[in-house]
Design a protein around this nucleic acid. Structure first.
Length: 591
RNA sequence: GUGCCCGUAGCUCAAUCGGAUAGAGCACCAGCCUUCUAAGCUGGGGGUUACAGGUUCGAUUCCUGUCGGGCACGCCA
């Protein structure tokens, strides 16, 4: 296991306190937890044990605290222990104990902050998983930034992580994209078929149609009358909520799809595959440029091709959890905590998306993951109970599935909320955002708030005043340190041997405190699925560095003092770089 | 209507099992570059943590209710 200094230090303090508890309250089984006080004059660690034990021991907490402190054995780590307030036990470390973190960081380098929360268990993080029917937009960007950062943090916290993208290549949306592309292709050869309002209207569809024309020439052209045969025509909505018109247009689209399939025969697949592969390649390239790399792109269609979907429905049926009603087959999910039963196979014989999702999650568990993390948009929250219900009904460990929800991104342009529609092609793409504000700023901005908090993305602010973005504040701290080291010109590798005794100012101890807290931050962020904690930590660490930078001169004549200070800021740079890397943000050496 | 999430400084947001005087940034006010990067620093004003109860040594945090906002409630994906 990698050296991990902080837990050891904490563990040693806890051991001292446990010794005291055994003396004062032998029957106590309370876990001893250390907290980090907000204020420096409350020491490096605080313990609320006396307050908790007061009730069971029926002794005043303050008196109990004093007894505990008196029973703590002496240690070279501890400067003194105080009792404060109603019964807090505040532990003050010796200067040497505080300084030791600098050496620990320099020796472990990128391994500093590694914790063993995961105990090498295998976890899959599935995220983005957007329909490959158009470019990723800024909403997907949040899921991408969150998922990628979370995966990195889990990796750092001792899990073996697999990153997966679920490709919805089997559904009606893909058919609509294929037909949209085909219709644009036909238009290029003189077709006068009106383009349906519920088709995909973005320019990228016309681009794909042009490539299709280039490759296939007129081979896939069919007469307008045949394409439109049996369609009800396009209805114009008379109001915002015009259900009849919407229904008619959906029917229109369904018949267009059916006509396309029968008119093109095997060649329908050519159009379908072209659209799918173009969009997937686009998506993959887009994400890679965003610093988001997947280990696996898992095809939904493959679950149909290998019979998994049919098989899993049969398993549920055999187990007695499926019944037939109105011609459809229903899974009795209400028997497993869902609020109502759900259709798995429609009256027309087609399996629902839910059915393939059951097969997908059964497949995930069959792959042997100890933990499965699905990053979903907040609009899918009602979907969680039914997936868990299905896993339970199959006798699978549903508790291994965890679903952090990511709230929506609202886009603001010129102070007003921008509408986004994939089908109409009206959205700001992730690619556009990246080009405008840069990858670093976008990645950092996305994880700057809790995932269950709405994110208001002000495009004007992000684009025009990107210097206000806090990411530059953190990167600047890193660049400043490297600037000092470059000016110094010595060998940073030797700094791990520097004597640290000259470091004893409040600012220096504050920086050491932050370095000590990095592993703790990683563990918490991993346990809570909260990458924003890392972002806030980095802002705090950078603030402490900037403050220090302004207060002292590093390249001084006093050689021991100089080396000690350089060792400290080099350790800070190491942690800044590591933390930024977790969030997919670069750590430039000059700015 | 039912379920889930949210409500903290003028604005955008933090707050580690329930802990000590609720913290940052932006904006506002006053200072700091002849010296390692001023994309920085120092100081200041700004709060009934939506509201009303409850639990307890202690509540932004847990429970109940009210008000306000978001999302979901298909044989869509």
């Amino acid at each position: 296991m990698t050296e991990s200094h902080t837990p050891t230090l904490q563990a040693r303090i806890v051991a001292l306190l446990r010794h005291a508890v055994r003396t004062v309250a032998p029957d106590s089984e309370a876990e001893i937890l250390l907290e980090r006080p907000r204020q420096a004059d409350h020491g490096e660690f605080a313990c609320t044990l006396a307050l908790q034990l007061a009730k069971t021991t029926r002794r005043p907490p303050r008196e109990l605290a004093l007894a505990l402190v008196a029973a703590v054995p002496p240690s070279d780590l501890v400067e003194r222990i105080e009792v404060a307030g109603p019964g807090f036990i505040n532990v003050f470390l010796t200067a040497a104990a505080k300084q030791s973190v600098v050496t620990a960081v320099l020796r472990t380098s990128n391994a500093w902050g590694r914790v063993d929360l995961g105990r090498q268990r295998r976890v899959q993080v599935e995220f983005v998983s957007s329909n490959p029917t158009g470019p990723l937009h800024v909403g997907h960007g949040r899921g991408a930034a969150f998922g990628a950062s979370l995966a990195n943090i889990l990796d750092k916290a001792g899990y073996r992580v697999q990153r997966e993208y679920y490709v919805n290549d089997a559904g009606r949306q893909m058919d609509i994209l294929a037909v949209s592309t085909w219709l644009r292709y036909l238009t290029g050869f003189g077709s006068r078929i009106p383009f349906p309002p519920n088709g995909y209207q973005g320019d990228y569809v016309a681009d794909m149609a042009q490539r299709l024309r280039h490759v296939e020439n007129t081979r896939l052209v069919r007469p307008d009358e045949a394409v439109l045969r049996g369609t009800p025509g396009i209805a114009v909505r008379q109001a915002d909520e015009d259900q009849a018109a919407d229904d008619q247009n959906e029917t229109h689209m369904d018949i267009l799809i059916a006509n396309a399939k029968s008119l093109l025969g095997e060649d329908y697949r050519v159009v379908h595959q072209l659209a799918l592969h173009e969009q997937l390649a686009d998506c993959r390239g887009d994400l890679e440029a965003f610093g988001v790399i997947f280990d696996e792109w898992f095809s939904e269609q493959s679950l149909y091709d290998d019979g998994s979907v049919a098989r899993v429905v049969e398993q549920l049926t055999t187990a007695g959890h499926v019944y037939e009603q109105d011609g459809a087959r229903w899974f009795r999910s209400s028997a497993f905590g869902d609020e109502k039963d759900r259709v798995v196979q429609r009256e027309n014989g087609i399996f629902t998306y839910f059915a393939s999702d059951i097969a997908y999650h059964a497949n995930k568990l069959a792959r042997g993951f100890d933990l499965i993390v699905d990053v979903w948009g907040a609009d899918h929250h009602g979907y969680i109970p039914r997936v868990k219900a299905a896993l339970m009904a199959l006798g699978l460990p549903a508790e291994r599935l965890q679903v952090p929800l990511v709230q929506f991104v609202s886009l603001y342009r010129h102070g007003t909320k921008a509408q986004m529609s994939t089908r109409k092609g009206q959205f700001v793409t992730l690619r556009e955002l990246r080009t405008e504000v840069g990858r670093d700023a976008a990645r950092f901005f996305y994880v700057l708030r809790k995932s269950d908090q709405h994110l208001d993305f002000d495009l004007d602010l992000a684009k025009s005043e990107s210097n206000d973005n806090p990411v530059y504040y953190v990167q600047y701290a890193h660049a400043r340190i490297h600037s000092v080291l470059a000016k110094w010109g010595g060998d940073p590798g030797l700094l791990a041997q520097a004597a640290l005794a000259p470091l004893h100012s409040p600012q220096e101890f504050a920086l050491m405190q932050w370095l000590r807290e990095y592993p703790e931050t990683i563990e918490l962020a991993a346990r809570e699925y909260a990458p924003h904690m890392v972002a806030f930590y980095l802002k705090d660490l950078a603030a402490a560095l900037h403050s220090y930078y302004n207060a002292v001169q590093f390249l001084v004549d006093d050689e021991p003092l100089k080396l000690a200070r350089l060792a400290l800021i080099t350790a800070v740079a190491t942690v800044l770089r590591d933390g930024l890397a977790l969030l997919g943000v670069s750590a430039p050496e000059t700015m």
